[in-house]
Nucleic acid binder design. Sequence first.
DNA 1: TTCTATCCCATGATATCCCATATAATCCCA
DNA 2: TGGGATTATATGGGATATCATGGGATAGAA
Lengths: 155, 155
Amino acid sequence: MDLFLSTFENKIDRKGRISVPAIYRNVFERKNTSLYLFKSLTKSCLEGCGIDRINQIVDAIDQMDVLSEDTLTLQTMLSSTQEMKFDNEGRIMLSDDFIGYASLDGIALFSGIGRSFEIWNPLQWYPRDTATRDSAKKGKVPKLSFARNSNQGYS
Amino acid sequence: MDLFLSTFENKIDRKGRISVPAIYRNVFERKNTSLYLFKSLTKSCLEGCGIDRINQIVDAIDQMDVLSEDTLTLQTMLSSTQEMKFDNEGRIMLSDDFIGYASLDGIALFSGIGRSFEIWNPLQWYPRDTATRDSAKKGKVPKLSFARNSNQGYS
DNA sequence: TTCTATCCCATGATATCCCATATAATCCCA
DNA sequence: TGGGATTATATGGGATATCATGGGATAGAA
């Protein structure tokens, strides 16, 4: 499965192009698949993923009540989704819509969060990162079980 | 399962490279897997582990409420995680971000703590080590259960 | 045409590769 | 068991390749 880690800050040039970090790009080049970008439902950022993730959403919709609120929400995600094309240098073009939604301005921050990655205005991302770390230091660290029969938390 | 023990102090050269202790390196070379480094959530050090632990975090996120605080925390961990590449001499490159976060300066201390290891500024590690030992001498020693079918973790 | 997206080439920064060396650890044989 | 020989490890530095970025040229749509 796809795995996106680390953070990177890249420039948006005057043509609206931005380099996708090479290690993210490799995920798509290896499998010869496309990168899909959509507006995050809950945060003011863009979210990037592979076709697998998109298919998960589509399948989820198929199994839900057509009239439900959740269906509408997922459909909203899909309607904002764009299939991105890489140029020879591994860059993509961000639409004005995307740039506006994420309040991007000259520099974008890629933040790998596992199965997908986010694209942020650095000025909005850093305070959130700091806040989350501060919260964790106050003891709000999620417990992960690393051994089968253990109650050991992570710290 | 991976096992990291002992402490080592190695130099960070002017290119930002540092030798990973051979016995740590062997863990990854034997399984032909990568070393992952991330910023500790609770301490001013870096933490090193294998892909297994990363996968546990990713899987945990998949099964959690997207909007929960815990999800945010785990995503913060992943966004600081880097897959490290060994050069032919068994060194890795520490990014400026990592060096800054752990306040590293010329020398780094590797501290094996079982399933993972930590990378510290020696000046910060030694006082902590001493303090923990002093505390233990005053009776604060955890109980260890060696019973075969125990579910108790170390704490 | 005019605007814009795509292609193609150039460049600087820096990560990676490769070779060298000093020191420490291990081996091996008398 | 001692001590020289050999190997492993940590470190340093030059050469090379990769990556992010910039910009001109071309193609296509409005």
